[in-house]
Design a binder for these strands. Structure first.
Lengths: 195, 195, 195, 195
DNA sequence: TATGAATGAGATTTCATTCAT
DNA sequence: GATGAATGAAATCTCATTCAT
């Protein structure tokens, strides 16, 4: 019925929609706005997708595939500090490629996670959490990290910080990706106190 | 016109609405759901408020008044480390009293900040940012914090982390408020590395 | 049930309502606005009136009683020119006492005239029309007015002009009632052409 | 976004809406009634217009464009008597093409003129007034009209009379447009008195 | 593939009116 | 007489989706 997933036109439309989602959120973006951006009428979108959620699905699943690939590669690293460093670096790179997906998760998590169709969101989140905790645990047990570190709590405190810098993309900030990653890693490993 | 702001009934309705907003976000919550929760018809809400946004306004402005009071008190502290510690502690306390407002800002920031009526959101955010940067600058200049600290970048990295623990309230997590604050402060000041 | 028609409080409320109707029209004025103007709650109005229409009824019937009294007095005048002059003079005087009623008729005639309760509006209008036509006919037949005068058409053209000056009351115009009446009579009898 | 302004369907809908507005006034006509008249659901109207007011806007601005064109053409006439005659004739012709707009102005002037969107209403009214006064002044100064003519007052007395005959259209009256115009001009220039 | 038109469910809001206290 | 709270019907508007052409 609808355009095949690898069609160029379709890919373009997904990207246009993604830009709008990144700006205003998934629910706040209307199908008409997407169509306007593409220069067609809203009904015509349904030749390519069978629903607005399909577009969201496409963006979100591509995003999580990418994220998880990065995490899995990082988890193969034997040194926990290096593993964490790699997680952070790969996350930052991935996120800048998927701004829309991130905004969608931040704004409309409740909406998506409640639907069976998006069950993979919860699964992926669990894998992400487990990866972090595993590395933090390994680092603590090996004496590399503080012995009193509550690894699960630390993960919770850290998780969201990772997703944030992406949303700065549109503002006129002066930082490069590298600066952000370095600042974040330094903060994470050493805190702000001088020695 | 509508019920006065200090009416008991009205306060109760704002709280009910807030609970729903905290759960599902502002826009995702319908006026009918609020009315249902109150056991009245949706139209009856308009006896007390002239719009759904008025309810939002009430929650958001109360929140920011509370936050800013805490920040101003903390800024009076002469020692920067103490000041930051107090910011974090007061934030955590404030946030747990305003879960709804926080969810609203996280989910629907674009929506609110675009409206003139909610211009105070941007103003408040600027004051919050300035307070953080001031304290970080003072700490760095006095040799208390690392000399190479990019204070604005650090603020950016930190800001959102502060708002997060609130959203855990509903989940059956095992941490007390104190544990969270202490974990956060430790992370902030010292990082995760063992010495 | 409700307050008796001659109660002072009630009269005062009718007047307040009338002021609002004159400004914004009957339907455009809400019961709440009337109550606000009176310093009470909207529900409390129903101790005095059993409906918003009752207030309208009171204003409209008082107006038409007054108008018709003036027309009937004028019709008793033997000289048609004098009769018409008196109609105009009495109308102007009457109208300035009933601005609200006039606005109601101008804005919401369709609304009122469709209701059985306001059947007297049509009756009164017919009497007004007949009075005009009678006087114009008498004047034409006696050679006082032009022989080719279409009296019914002339009435139609004139009727609304009569009601208008009232609506100027609030604007900062420089004319007295007398000036308006004289200008109107002169226009009516002699036109604008110089001789 | 919505259907373009020159779409046939859209034009048809505006006309349908206009018929209803002319009958019952703008505010008294519901969107559902318009949709019913068109044989569609009320929501479907918003495929073509973004609000009920847009329909009103379309009718009112078309009306005023038409009126002003007539006035400007008449103002080019060197002889004031001819100019006024032309104003009256063009007005009558214009008005019969825009019954809806006229009813809207008569019933709901307060509503429209209060909105920034309809600011052009006041502007147009001022131009209309100025045109009348200019021609009356010129006629008086050239000795064609009475020397004691209060031109501004006369305009005020005349203005509304011009708009009236339109509202007769639906009633089964016996006059042609020409009869009405001639009656009006005769009244205006010569009054009703025989010589 | 796209257009043009429409659906239909549901959202926010308005407002005259009622009534127990 | 008034308050405070609510009703209930109806209004305007939104938007994802459908479908004949």
């Amino acid at each position: 019925m609808t355009t095949p997933r690898n069609s160029e036109r379709r890919t373009h439309l997904v990207q246009l929609a993604g830009d709008l989602f990144a700006e205003k959120g998934f629910r706040a973006t209307t199908v008409r706005e997407i169509a306007d951006a593409a220069g067609i009428l809203s009904g015509s979108l349904y030749h390519h997708f069978d629903s607005k959620e399909s577009i969201g699905d496409e963006l979100l699943s591509a995003f999580l595939d990418d994220v998880l690939a990065g995490y899995r590669a990082a988890a193969a690293e034997p040194d926990p500090r290096r593993a964490i460093e790699q997680i952070v670096r790969s996350s930052t790179a991935t996120l800048s490629r998927h701004r829309a997906a991130l905004t969608m998760l931040q704004n409309d998590w409740t909406y998506f996670s409640a639907q069976p169709r998006f069950a993979y969101l919860r699964t992926a989140m669990k894998e992400i959490e487990q990866t972090w905790i595993d590395q933090l645990d390994r680092g603590r047990e090996s004496g590399l990290f503080r012995a009193d570190l509550d690894t699960r709590l630390t993960y919770r405190l850290l998780r969201d910080i990772l997703w944030i810098p992406t949303s700065w993309a549109q503002s006129k900030n002066a930082w490069t990706d590298d600066q952000i990653v370095d600042g974040l890693l330094r903060l994470l490993f050493d805190g702000i106190t001088a020695r």
